[in-house]
């Protein structure tokens, strides 16, 4: 099974937006919903995941020839768990308050299916440089998605952004958005918005390519 050839920059940008791990592939939902009640938490969680993803992609890609096929998943998980332990301890040392708020969710990066899926689908088959690019892209995409969630939830639920008050003292915070239901709702509405945008773009493209009176537009291939 030889991997499809892709341009290096495509490996990077694919993960950031078009195949965004959270918003498109729906992977790694657990941290994306659980710790995004403020932008700061989202950012640190994103950075920790970025670090773990890059580190494990690096190691997996480096030693991919040495890992026997039958035990590759446990090996990946062990490598990931090692990096998560490093990230957990570093966060505790650098930003103790954030670490306390994130709680067990830093340790739960281990079972983030996004990371395992990148190892299995990419790092275990491609050269080192490409794997790193892919990890950077996917990690960045994860950070972007988390911050998108965190920004909405913090602004609506607390009236602040990165700790700065936005609306003045008269704003009545919409508390539900920093509580668990807000996580589900925010992601749900982001998806609605993205789907709507996608539909609008497809329809606009159809109208442009096929002006009225020419006949029915052909079915577009799924992008």
């Amino acid at each position: 099974m030889s991997p499809r050839e892709t341009a290096p920059q495509a490996d990077f940008f694919r993960g950031v937006w078009r195949e965004n791990p959270v918003l498109i592939q729906m992977l790694g939902l657990c941290p994306a919903l659980a710790v995004t009640n403020t932008v700061e938490n989202s950012l640190w969680m994103g950075l920790a995941t970025f670090f773990v993803l890059t580190g494990s992609s690096f190691i997996v890609s480096l030693i991919k020839k040495l890992i026997p096929g039958e035990v590759r998943i446990p090996t990946f998980i062990l490598i990931i768990a090692t990096f998560v332990t490093v990230a957990d301890m570093s966060l505790e040392a650098i930003v103790p308050t954030v670490h306390k708020q994130l709680g067990a969710f830093v340790a739960l990066i281990v079972v983030n299916c996004m990371i395992l899926s990148r190892q299995e689908a990419f790092a275990a088959k491609r050269p080192l440089g490409r794997s790193l690019l892919d990890a950077f892209g996917t990690g960045l995409g994860f950070i972007v998605a988390l911050v998108m969630m965190g920004a909405i939830r913090e602004v609506l639920g607390n009236g602040t952004l990165m700790g700065f008050s936005l609306f003045g003292p008269n704003f009545e915070p919409w508390v539900i958005f920093i509580l668990p239901p807000g996580g589900f709702l925010t992601l749900g509405f982001w998806l609605l918005l993205l789907n709507w945008f996608q539909k609008w773009r497809t329809e606009r493209a159809k109208v442009r390519a096929w002006p009225e009176g020419v006949g029915a537009p052909p079915e577009r291939k799924a992008a």
Binding site: M26, P181, G183, F184, L185, G188, F189, L191
Partner: peptide
């Protein structure tokens, strides 16, 4: 997914 998430939110 969008619908599932909104149901889950409720």
């Amino acid at each position: 997914m969008a619908l599932v998430l909104i149901i889950a939110g409720s």
